[in-house]
C-alpha cells in the first residue's frame, strides 16, 4: 500500500471514530462543564452515568433498556425461526409459484413503513394490541426478516446438493435433512440474527408511533430529553452512548460472522 492509501485510511478512521469519541467525552462531562470555554476535550466526571443508573430517571431508563432487549431478542428469535425453513425450501426444492413467492418476499424490502403504517395502526387499535410488545414484534418480524431470509438462502445455496442426495439415499427424513443443513449454515444464522438484531435495536419510527408508554425503547427514551424546558445534554448523550454499547459489543464478539454476512448479501 502506498503512502496516499495509508493517509486515506487513517483519515477515514479518524472521521469514523471522532464523533463516537466526542460522544463519550460529552457523556463524561457534567452538564455545566459542557458550557465552558475553552472546550474541555477530556472528562472523567461520572455524574451523568450515576444519575442515569441510580438517579430519578433510573426507573424509566431501566424500563426502556428492558423494552429494547425484550423486543430485539424476541423479534430476532421469532424472525429467524420463521425464516430458516423458508430459506431452506427456496434453496433446495423446486415447486410451483416459486418465482412469484420469492419476488413477494423480496419486494417487502421495497415497501417503506410509512405506506403501511395507518392500516397497521388501525389494526392494532381494533385488537387493542397498541403499545404492546406483540405488535412491535410482528412489525419487526415482517419488515426485517425478508433480509434474514435472503442471507440464509444464500448460505443454504452454498451447501452442496450432494449432501441432500446422501441424506436421501440413507433414508433420512426431509425434516432431518433440513436440520442437518441448518446446522451447517450456523455462521449464516449468526450473521442474519445480528443484522436483524441491529435493525430492531436501532428502530425509531416504529416505536415512535406504536409505543405510547409501556413499551418505549431506548432510542425513543433518548430523544425524550429534547422537549423538556432545560435539557440535560450530558445525560442525554450518556443514554445514547449506553444504547450504542450493546451493538458495539456484539460486533466485537461476532465480527467475522457479521462482515461475512454483509458480504454475502452484496453478491
Amino acid at each position: 500500500m502506498n503512502r496516499k492509501g495509508k493517509f486515506f485510511i487513517i483519515f477515514m478512521l479518524i472521521w469514523s471514530l471522532i464523533p463516537l469519541i466526542w460522544g463519550i467525552r460529552t457523556s463524561l462531562l457534567s452538564n455545566n462543564d459542557l458550557y465552558v470555554r475553552p472546550l474541555k476535550y477530556f472528562g472523567t466526571d461520572m455524574s451523568s452515568y450515576r444519575e442515569l443508573f441510580f438517579g430519578k430517571i433510573a426507573v424509566k431508563f431501566f424500563m426502556a433498556t428492558k423494552n429494547s432487549f425484550k423486543t430485539s431478542i424476541l423479534g430476532t428469535i421469532s424472525g429467524i425461526i420463521i425464516t430458516i425453513p423458508c430459506a431452506y425450501v427456496f434453496s433446495k426444492y423446486e415447486f410451483i409459484l416459486k418465482k412469484t413467492l420469492y419476488a413477494l418476499i423480496i419486494l417487502v424490502l421495497a415497501i417503506p413503513f410509512y405506506t403501511i403504517m395507518i392500516p397497521l395502526y388501525r389494526l392494532a387499535v381494533d385488537y387493542s394490541i397498541i403499545d404492546t410488545q406483540i405488535i412491535l414484534i410482528i412489525i419487526y418480524v415482517c419488515g426485517y426478516s425478508p433480509m434474514s431470509f435472503l442471507i440464509m438462502k444464500l448460505y443454504f445455496d452454498a451447501v452442496p446438493i450432494e449432501l441432500e442426495e446422501i441424506g436421501m439415499i440413507e433414508g433420512a427424513s426431509k425434516l432431518r435433512r433440513f436440520f442437518t443443513a441448518a446446522r451447517l449454515i450456523a455462521p449464516g444464522i449468526v450473521a442474519a440474527s445480528l443484522i436483524m438484531f441491529f435493525n430492531i435495536w436501532s428502530s425509531f419510527v416504529v416505536p415512535l408511533i406504536f409505543s405510547m408508554k409501556k413499551t418505549k425503547p431506548l432510542t425513543i427514551f433518548i430523544t425524550e430529553f429534547v422537549g423538556k424546558s432545560s435539557v440535560n445534554y450530558s445525560i442525554m448523550t450518556t443514554a445514547g452512548i449506553v444504547t450504542l454499547i450493546i451493538p458495539i459489543i456484539l460486533v466485537c464478539v461476532f465480527n467475522r460472522y457479521f462482515i461475512d454476512g454483509i458480504i454475502t448479501i452484496s453478491k
Binding site: 478512521l13 469514523s16 436501532s202 432510542t219 458495539i248
Partner: peptide
C-alpha cells in the same frame, strides 16, 4: 481497521443525531 470502520453503520440513527449535536 474494517471492524472500526463499521462502527458508524451500527450506530442507531437516533444516537447518531444526539452525538452530532455536540
Amino acid at each position: 481497521v474494517i471492524a472500526l470502520l463499521i462502527l458508524p453503520w451500527i450506530t442507531p440513527p437516533a444516537v447518531n443525531g444526539v452525538i452530532w449535536r455536540w
